[in-house]
Simulated assay, not measured.
Amino acid sequence: MKTAGSPAPLHEAAIDWLVVLRSGEATPDQLHDFDRWLVADPSHARVWDRLTARVDSRLGGLKTPAGGSADTLASTVAQAQIQSRNRRRMLKGTLAVGGLSTATAGLMLDRAMPLAQLFADYRTGTGERQWVTLADGSTIQLDARSAIDILFTPELRLVVLREGALLADVAPANTGGRNRPPFVVRTAQGTVRALGTRFAVRQRDDHTEVAMLLHRVELSPEQGLAHPLDEGQVARMTRQGVTPIDRSAHAASAWQGGLAEMHDQPLADLVAALKPYTRGYWHISPRAAECRVYGSYPLDDPDRTLQLMAETLPLRIRRYTGGWLVRIAMRDES
């Protein structure tokens, strides 16, 4: 019988098996015990199939490992979470705590680690930044909830930005008598070719934002003309073209140091910068989204940033379900 605040025993058992078997650490005895559990009652197989199918549905149409079976996909989800020190509690908690439906649990799991990017070469979860050193000595820092693929050939050093943001410190094409191929970052709207050494790229929903920190890059939109971007400049690239953004390149890349720097920008920009650092869902009213903000805000402490927003701006901030839902509105809004 299901009790308040806990999942039904059968569902709990299925989640236990998902964690254990798909961790890559299951022993032969555990595999045997799972087989016995699965055939012990028809309801066991039905619950197991529903659980793995729900996990698969979050990954539909994406790059999958060879074989691409439901069990393989479920295994990948579990392995990504098991890398955490609290691996069992993380997966069980997100899938089962509070008697949540599997669909809701999938959304919660996605807020911890973007499920759409599980098969990227490198990826970061919510609130996580990561440094990556590439084969040529170049380094890339990934912002929270970001993902990249790497493809190096004798003709091209290619980084595909699938989601989020990166800061690239590129090994020069010619140094010490070595000739390296061009270094290019690919986004949904076009390419960014390094003509210098240090730049930041962010993939937005409908455009790419590039901040040039040292020397120069060349932006090539899918359907437009190539456009140079010089040191200190920021630009927006769509498929059709490139337009400048009146913003400091260092402010645009301040996330590398754990800050969101706002200079007379809409509050919507600050909320967008914070979303990769919180596992909850934030909703901002249209009026509040237009409120202008200034200053530096900590990304690694969203609660502190919410407090600063409430103290310095005419906002009403309400939290529900332990912070899983945050609503931001003007004080005079109902």
Rank of each mutant, 00 (worst) to 15 (best):
L313A: 06
G176Q: 08
T238I: 02
R162S: 06
I148N: 02
V271Q: 03
L21A: 08
V55I: 15
S23H: 12
T72M: 08
V293K: 07
A8P: 00
E12D: 13
I82Q: 05
A13Q: 15
A74S: 15
R216H: 10
A53P: 07
V20C: 13
A74I: 12
D300K: 08
P154T: 02
H207R: 14
A8F: 04
A188G: 01
R87V: 00
T305L: 03
H227G: 11
E311D: 12
S334M: 08
V271W: 06
R204M: 12
A74H: 11
H32T: 09
I150E: 12
D56P: 10
T139D: 13
A78G: 02
F34D: 03
K2M: 10
D136T: 05
P181T: 02
M108G: 05
V39H: 10
R292D: 02
A14M: 04
T3V: 10
D33P: 04
R178G: 02
A4G: 05
D136A: 06
G99N: 14
R198T: 10
Q30G: 04
M237D: 10
R287Q: 10
G258Q: 06
D33G: 01
G322A: 08
P266A: 03
R319D: 05
V326C: 04
R180A: 03
V55Y: 02
D169Q: 15
P228L: 08
T104N: 08
S57Y: 11
T321N: 12
G257V: 06
D143N: 15
A116W: 00
Q265D: 15
M237N: 09
P286F: 06
E218I: 08
L31Q: 14
D143M: 00
A226L: 05
L214Y: 13
H44K: 05
T175C: 10
E163C: 01
I140W: 05
D300N: 13
L308A: 12
L151N: 12
A120V: 08
L134D: 15
L308Q: 13
M237P: 07
D149L: 01
S220W: 02
M309Q: 04
L166E: 02
P172F: 06
R145F: 00
T208K: 11
S220Q: 11
F199G: 13
L306N: 10
L308E: 14
